[in-house]
């Protein structure tokens, strides 16, 4: 790594990543687990964490980067304060999941600096279809509209 002085909280983050790496000893087969643990802790996988993992696991950064971006589960950008996850599964599609997206002020959501919008293939709660998840809670129909309005007015 370079000689640039790290900010104190970045230093803390790297210490945490170091501990996660130490916990998952082994070769390449430990990568997906490590990446999950880093993301679970920080909400995304920071670039500096990728640097560190590639060094410790003796991999090219490009190889690791390719792995991270090939999987849908990993984020390499810091998410905003709120995460709205739209279910884009077939069941929700048939039940007009997209119109839920449009009705829910799609543009205002996209333009909001507070919100990260994601799509997943199934939230596993087809009983709520069409469903969306806001900060880990599942919403549907009227409740979803109310909650989104609430976030947008923040």
């Amino acid at each position: 790594m370079t000689d640039i002085k790290l900010l104190p909280n970045a230093q803390k983050m790297l210490e945490r990543v170091e501990r996660i790496i130490a916990k998952n000893q082994g070769g390449q087969e430990t990568l997906v687990t490590i990446l999950h643990e880093v993301q679970d802790r920080f909400g995304y996988i920071p670039r500096q964490a990728l640097d560190l993992i590639s060094q410790r696991k003796n991999l090219f950064l490009s190889t690791l980067y390719r792995l991270v971006t090939s999987y849908r589960a990993f984020r390499i950008e810091k998410p905003e304060k709120h995460i709205i996850t739209f279910c884009n599964g077939t069941g929700c599609h048939v039940n007009s999941g997209e119109s839920l997206l449009k009705e829910s002020w799609a543009t205002s959501i996209q333009n909001s600096l507070n919100i990260t919008v994601e799509k997943v293939r199934c939230l596993g709660c087809c009983n709520m279809s069409p469903a969306l998840m806001i900060d880990g809670e599942v919403y549907s129909g009227q409740d979803a509209q109310v909650k989104i309005a609430e976030i947008l007015s923040e």
């Binding site: 090939s70 999987y71 589960a73």
Partner: peptide, 8 residues
Amino acid sequence: VKRGGGAY
């Protein structure tokens, strides 16, 4: 148990 990376 291993968690996947989310690819169909």
